[in-house]
Amino acid sequence: MSQIIVQVEHLHLSYKNVKAVQDVSFSIAEGQVLAVIGANGSGKTSTIECVEGLRKPDSGSVLVFGKEPMLHRGEIYKKIGIQLQETEYPAKIQVEELCRLYAGFYERPADWEGLLLQMNLAEKRKRTVSKLSGGEKQRLSVLLALMGRPKLLILDELTTGLDPEVRQNMWETFRAIRENGVAILLVSHYLDEVEALADRMLYLEKGKQQFFGTQEEFRQWAKARIAPEQLREADTLEKLYLQIVPKTTGITMEGIL
């Protein structure tokens, strides 16, 4: 049986009076890819920041490799690679210097020269980070997440800002990483990405857990919640998701343009 890497039970987190996460429970085993989905503000990033040990939950338990991340951060981070949703690096640092710096943080760093080639950044190694494009910064961010040869990868909006070809290549990379037993916790707004990578899904709405299970179970669960006449149109995960996600107020350009 695969080893459980992340175990979250009855997680609650509030910011002042806002309940960001309410009673969320899930687990990830080695070699599994769990996608966390939901609209903006549904508590996805707050949930994974608790897993990362960057936020202290109000209640509930979070165990990563059997330990509380807030208390054993230094030890756990030797096995975790993280790509944050919002991240910046010192503007005037060069790509190569940043790689060397991060490599020094780990006892057994990955071959970052090889990763630079794989991420198509080898030619930019002497370029300062501030001069990279959005997509290049994103690839650099993924490269740094892989630096410690992680057993758990946490990717918050992995392919945002990447062109379709690079996205496909990135998916291939992560499929191969997963084959090596690495667990992946993925937050994404792209349902095609979720469809391509995830075998398990956690769906949140306004901080509350609506679903946790396999991708197939999610499809069945979602189909049971939509009208039969809409079923025919919901032939992809994205279309299915759009049928169940709460509708946001329509944005109109009327009177503006």
Binding site: E52, L54, R73, G74, E75, Y77, K78, I80, I82, L84, E86, T87, E88, Y89, P90, Y102, F105, Y106, L144, G148
Partner: peptide
């Protein structure tokens, strides 16, 4: 570093 969340990224490494 605080404003740009540069420290936050370092916090997600073994050295903090």
């Amino acid at each position: 570093c605080k404003e740009k969340k540069i420290y936050k990224r370092f916090d997600a490494t073994p050295v903090g």
